[in-house]
Amino acid sequence: EVPFKVVAQFPYKSDYEDDLNFEKDQEIIVTSVEDAEWYFGEYQDSNGDVIEGIFPKSFVAVQG
């Protein structure tokens, strides 16, 4: 069931425009499960802007 919160276990950096880049310990709200390997989610950056994109499930852990 979406949405749910995950926390980055590792930093994720990608050159693909659709990917969500983040640092370790970033909290991310997952709004869609793309497939067995990928989530789609969002978070607010330090400027208060909402950043969204896809990212690999293996880089995050589900909270709770």
Results as ranks from 00 to 15, higher is better:
residue 21 N to V: 07
residue 20 L to Y: 02
residue 26 Q to H: 03
residue 22 F to G: 01
residue 2 V to T: 10
residue 21 N to Y: 11
residue 40 F to L: 07
residue 18 D to T: 14
residue 42 E to T: 12
residue 64 G to D: 12
residue 51 I to A: 08
residue 37 E to L: 11
residue 44 Q to A: 11
residue 31 T to G: 01
residue 32 S to N: 11
residue 62 V to C: 11
residue 42 E to F: 15
residue 43 Y to T: 04
residue 22 F to A: 00
residue 44 Q to T: 14
residue 35 D to A: 08
residue 59 F to Q: 05
residue 3 P to Y: 07
residue 9 Q to V: 15
residue 6 V to Y: 02
residue 54 I to Y: 15
residue 1 E to T: 14
residue 20 L to R: 01
residue 23 E to A: 08
residue 61 A to E: 12
residue 4 F to N: 03
residue 63 Q to S: 12
residue 17 E to A: 13
residue 25 D to C: 15
residue 19 D to E: 14
residue 6 V to K: 01
residue 52 E to P: 02
residue 10 F to L: 11
residue 40 F to D: 00
residue 36 A to D: 14
residue 54 I to W: 15
residue 28 I to T: 02
residue 60 V to Y: 03
residue 20 L to H: 01
residue 41 G to N: 01
residue 59 F to A: 11
residue 29 I to T: 14
residue 33 V to E: 06
residue 35 D to Y: 08
residue 2 V to C: 12
residue 37 E to V: 10
residue 21 N to C: 12
residue 9 Q to E: 05
residue 49 D to T: 12
residue 19 D to F: 14
residue 34 E to A: 14
residue 46 S to I: 12
residue 49 D to L: 13
residue 32 S to P: 01
residue 57 K to S: 11
residue 35 D to H: 08
residue 49 D to V: 14
residue 25 D to Q: 05
residue 64 G to V: 12
residue 16 Y to F: 12
residue 21 N to F: 10
residue 43 Y to R: 03
residue 45 D to L: 13
residue 29 I to L: 14
residue 54 I to G: 09
residue 5 K to N: 06
residue 43 Y to H: 00
residue 53 G to Y: 04
residue 50 V to D: 03
residue 23 E to T: 06
residue 48 G to Y: 03
residue 46 S to M: 11
residue 5 K to Q: 06
residue 29 I to D: 04
residue 33 V to T: 07
residue 26 Q to R: 03
residue 15 D to I: 11
residue 36 A to E: 13
residue 41 G to K: 01
residue 42 E to P: 01
residue 21 N to T: 10
residue 55 F to I: 02
residue 61 A to T: 14
residue 63 Q to F: 13
residue 39 Y to D: 02
residue 12 Y to V: 03
residue 11 P to A: 14
residue 28 I to S: 00
residue 51 I to H: 15
residue 30 V to D: 00
residue 31 T to M: 07
residue 35 D to W: 08
residue 19 D to H: 15
residue 7 V to S: 04
residue 61 A to L: 12
residue 25 D to L: 06
residue 42 E to S: 13
residue 14 S to N: 03
residue 15 D to R: 11
residue 54 I to V: 11
residue 51 I to S: 07
residue 13 K to C: 13
residue 7 V to A: 03
residue 38 W to T: 10
residue 3 P to S: 05
residue 45 D to E: 06
residue 33 V to C: 08
residue 6 V to G: 01
residue 19 D to C: 15
residue 41 G to P: 02
residue 60 V to I: 05
residue 13 K to M: 10
residue 62 V to Q: 10
residue 30 V to S: 00
residue 58 S to V: 09
residue 54 I to E: 04
residue 39 Y to I: 00
residue 45 D to I: 08
residue 57 K to C: 09
residue 29 I to C: 15
residue 13 K to L: 08
residue 29 I to K: 07
residue 17 E to N: 09
residue 58 S to D: 09
residue 34 E to P: 15
residue 35 D to N: 14
residue 51 I to G: 01
residue 19 D to L: 07
residue 50 V to R: 13
residue 26 Q to P: 02
residue 2 V to F: 09
residue 51 I to F: 13
residue 54 I to A: 11
residue 44 Q to I: 14
residue 51 I to E: 04
residue 31 T to P: 02
residue 59 F to E: 03
residue 14 S to P: 01
residue 18 D to H: 14
residue 20 L to G: 00
residue 63 Q to D: 09
residue 16 Y to H: 15
residue 34 E to D: 08
residue 22 F to Q: 01
residue 11 P to Q: 09
residue 37 E to S: 08
residue 2 V to D: 03
residue 57 K to Y: 06
residue 56 P to I: 04
residue 49 D to Q: 13
residue 30 V to G: 02
residue 50 V to K: 14
residue 16 Y to K: 15
residue 8 A to E: 03
residue 42 E to N: 14
residue 30 V to T: 01
residue 59 F to L: 14
residue 3 P to L: 07
residue 9 Q to G: 04
residue 12 Y to R: 06
residue 8 A to K: 00
residue 64 G to C: 13
residue 57 K to D: 03
residue 49 D to F: 13
residue 7 V to I: 13
residue 50 V to F: 08
residue 33 V to M: 08
residue 20 L to C: 05
residue 33 V to S: 06
residue 20 L to P: 01
residue 22 F to S: 01
residue 5 K to M: 10
residue 56 P to E: 03
residue 4 F to V: 00
residue 11 P to R: 10
residue 55 F to S: 02
residue 20 L to A: 02
residue 26 Q to D: 02
residue 2 V to G: 05
residue 19 D to N: 14
residue 36 A to C: 13
residue 4 F to Y: 04
residue 51 I to N: 10
residue 8 A to I: 03
residue 62 V to K: 11
residue 39 Y to M: 03
residue 47 N to R: 09
residue 40 F to G: 04
residue 2 V to H: 05
residue 43 Y to N: 01
residue 36 A to M: 08
residue 38 W to L: 07
residue 44 Q to V: 14
residue 62 V to M: 12
residue 50 V to C: 14
residue 14 S to F: 02
residue 60 V to K: 00
residue 46 S to T: 11
residue 29 I to Q: 05
residue 61 A to D: 10
residue 21 N to K: 09
residue 53 G to K: 00
residue 54 I to F: 15
residue 33 V to A: 07
residue 59 F to M: 12
residue 38 W to I: 05
residue 6 V to L: 02
residue 7 V to W: 09
residue 11 P to N: 08
residue 28 I to E: 01
residue 3 P to K: 06
residue 1 E to G: 14
residue 25 D to E: 07
residue 64 G to I: 12
residue 53 G to P: 01
residue 61 A to M: 13
residue 49 D to S: 11
residue 38 W to D: 00
residue 40 F to N: 04
residue 24 K to A: 10
residue 41 G to C: 05
residue 49 D to R: 14
residue 12 Y to N: 03
residue 42 E to K: 13
residue 25 D to A: 06
residue 2 V to L: 11
residue 59 F to H: 14
residue 13 K to A: 07
residue 8 A to R: 01
residue 40 F to R: 15
residue 43 Y to K: 00
residue 18 D to C: 15
residue 15 D to E: 13
residue 32 S to C: 15
residue 55 F to E: 00
residue 31 T to V: 07
residue 61 A to F: 11
residue 52 E to C: 15
residue 45 D to T: 12
residue 45 D to R: 08
residue 43 Y to D: 00
residue 20 L to M: 08
residue 8 A to Q: 01
residue 18 D to R: 15
residue 10 F to V: 08
residue 64 G to P: 12
residue 15 D to T: 12
residue 23 E to Y: 06
residue 64 G to Y: 11
residue 27 E to S: 06
residue 30 V to C: 04
residue 7 V to R: 10
residue 46 S to N: 09
residue 17 E to R: 11
residue 3 P to N: 05
residue 12 Y to W: 06
residue 48 G to A: 03
residue 55 F to L: 01
residue 59 F to V: 11
residue 37 E to M: 11
residue 47 N to V: 06
residue 1 E to M: 13
residue 29 I to M: 12
residue 28 I to D: 00
residue 23 E to W: 05
residue 22 F to C: 04
residue 37 E to Y: 14
residue 55 F to W: 02
residue 3 P to M: 05
residue 25 D to V: 03
residue 17 E to F: 09
residue 59 F to N: 05
residue 6 V to Q: 02
residue 54 I to Q: 12
residue 52 E to T: 15
residue 3 P to D: 02
residue 37 E to R: 07
residue 2 V to Y: 06
residue 44 Q to S: 10
residue 23 E to S: 08
residue 48 G to C: 07
residue 11 P to D: 09
residue 14 S to Y: 02
residue 38 W to C: 09
residue 61 A to I: 14
residue 60 V to H: 01
residue 30 V to H: 03
residue 11 P to K: 09
residue 17 E to K: 13
residue 5 K to G: 04
residue 21 N to P: 07
residue 5 K to P: 04
residue 7 V to E: 02
residue 18 D to E: 13
residue 51 I to K: 15
residue 13 K to I: 10
residue 19 D to S: 14
residue 59 F to I: 10
